[in-house]
Design a protein around this nucleic acid. Sequence first.
DNA 1: CAGTATCCAGATCGATACTG
DNA 2: CAGTATCGATCTGGATACTG
Lengths: 137, 137
Amino acid sequence: MGNSGKVEANRWEEINAACDALSETEEELTREMVMRLADKWSLWTLAILAEEDGPLRFTRLMERVEGVSQKSLTKTLRALERDGLITRQIFAEVPPRVEYTITALGLELLSHVEPLWNWVARSVPQFQRTRQEFEAR
Amino acid sequence: MGNSGKVEANRWEEINAACDALSETEEELTREMVMRLADKWSLWTLAILAEEDGPLRFTRLMERVEGVSQKSLTKTLRALERDGLITRQIFAEVPPRVEYTITALGLELLSHVEPLWNWVARSVPQFQRTRQEFEAR
DNA sequence: CAGTATCCAGATCGATACTG
DNA sequence: CAGTATCGATCTGGATACTG
């Protein structure tokens, strides 16, 4: 493990290099996107839509994304739509119908989130141990 | 692109399967870890420590993580330490010296964050275009 | 049905002052 | 030097009521 740290560090420097190539605005946008992924509902909502593999109405989404409020779901959906990760189609009917569908970009994003999420999930026992040691001091 | 959506969706279902295997507490911890990655300072601090490839003192860290307050940096460092992503070594000297170092686990985490971050950074132009279209309506 | 509008509680974070 | 303590502005998000 002596130089594995060095390897990893170098790999991380590549990210910084890639980031430095971005303008201030672009760097901010990158950060914003990454932060959105971790907010309370975005990833979950996106995952539900991916799982569904088809359109879902607002109320169905609220049922599946357990615990979300109307306000938060609306806000989440607007942000996802704005970034092109989902589409929102309104049907001129009574009662109104609105269908949300994940886009190719949204699916691509999820495919890049997956490895990280899996690693974290697999590492949970490790984190639990570390925390217990930390608290035992 | 007809069935690429299906492929991606199936891949995402694997995540859900992996997540379902976790207990409530573990799932919560996974979410908590992922969310921490996106908070304002954690990832940046971790990246600085990875880049440094060696110990850094509190004040040096504050200089490099531009804009962070003492309070936020302290909180961030405690959380990272608690999860075993960095170590904190105190030297019994006057004036006191405290050195922070990234751990192997921290480096491993960064290596899994990198691909996602890079993809988002590369996709920034796409997001910018999408947003402009969205606002033009 | 699919929202919007309003109010409110809790968390977050920076600035500032102080300390072992 | 490396924090802690405190205050206040800001943000987030839930609950509730209302609407095209």
